[in-house]
């Protein structure tokens, strides 16, 4: 089995967002970059599959030199090889899906794994778009995956519940928190990764579907007030305020 794991480099969840001078992008100063957490579940699932069934795991990312950190980490965790597609990794989901499809289309991957969304962009679109461009099946927001010869069974999270999706391989499967518990890289893994090289290819030309013309911060919330008194008085005052002022009830 040959597995492709698509990884995205994103700002850490603790990042305080500042808008860059162009008014439409993130100011990269002081930003700590990490592998998108959902992609970590995807990578872990690929490595577990390799350990249990035997598989070749290829880690892939779209971006520039700094994106190599994501791939080095994937190699340290157990990916067999890594590919950097040089292009705009922060481009819209459709552009990134075309870049990855351009690479994957003739490589005969049995399974393509990625996060159900890239943290930050929050599009939740690249996976399904990639599946469509490659003409293969998809299962998104997956918390359980079973692989058989030529087919898969997956549990997908839905509103307040879940459902079982079955389909043929190859397929694109997008991971959700709960699929597994990602491991940490071992010292041995980190040392071994240093000896591996990252293959670098130019991204195929693509068309962009959307463009961000402005990035803005949410409006400040109005100053609130603290409710005084003992617990019973505070509770009474809150329910009253929610009813009369906020008209929530």
């Amino acid at each position: 089995m040959k597995i492709l794991v698509a990884l995205k480099q994103v700002p850490d969840t603790e990042t305080k967002i500042k808008v860059a001078a162009d008014g439409r992008s993130l100011d990269p100063a002081d930003v700590k970059w990490i592998t998108s957490p959902y992609d970590e579940y995807a990578l872990e699932e690929a490595i577990r599959t390799k350990e249990s069934k035997g598989a070749e795991v290829v880690a892939l990312s779209v971006g520039g030199d700094s994106t190599k950190d994501v791939l080095k980490n994937a190699l340290a965790l157990g990916a067999d090889s890594a590919v950097l597609l040089r292009g705009d990794g922060q481009g819209d989901a459709f552009a990134v899906a075309q870049i990855i499809a351009g690479y994957a289309k003739d490589k005969a991957f049995d399974l393509i794994l990625c996060g159900n969304k890239g943290l930050g962009g929050d599009n939740a679109a690249m996976g399904p778009m990639l599946a469509e461009l490659l003409g293969i099946g998809q299962a998104n927001v997956i918390v359980m995956l079973e692989l058989s010869e030529g087919s898969f069974k997956a549990e997908r999270e839905t509103e307040g519940g879940s459902e079982i999706v079955e389909g043929a391989l190859p397929a694109v499967i997008t991971a959700q928190k709960g699929l597994n518990e990602p491991r940490y890289a071992s010292l041995k893994g980190i040392m071994a990764a240093k000896k591996k090289t990252i293959e670098e290819l130019d991204a195929v030309p693509v068309t962009t579907g959307t463009q961000i013309i402005a990035l803005s911060l949410p409006p400040e919330r109005p100053a609130g007030r603290k409710l005084e008194g003992d617990a019973a008085a505070q509770a009474q005052a809150l329910i009253q305020a929610l009813k009369d002022e906020a008209k929530v009830f």
């Binding site: 930050g120 990035l215 949410p218």
Partner: peptide, 19 residues
């Protein structure tokens, strides 16, 4: 033209379509 939350609502992106 769309406005969508990014960074889980830490910012909002005004988005236009090329298609």
């Amino acid at each position: 033209q769309a406005i969508r939350p990014v960074y889980a609502g830490k910012a909002f992106a005004t988005t236009t379509f090329a298609s």
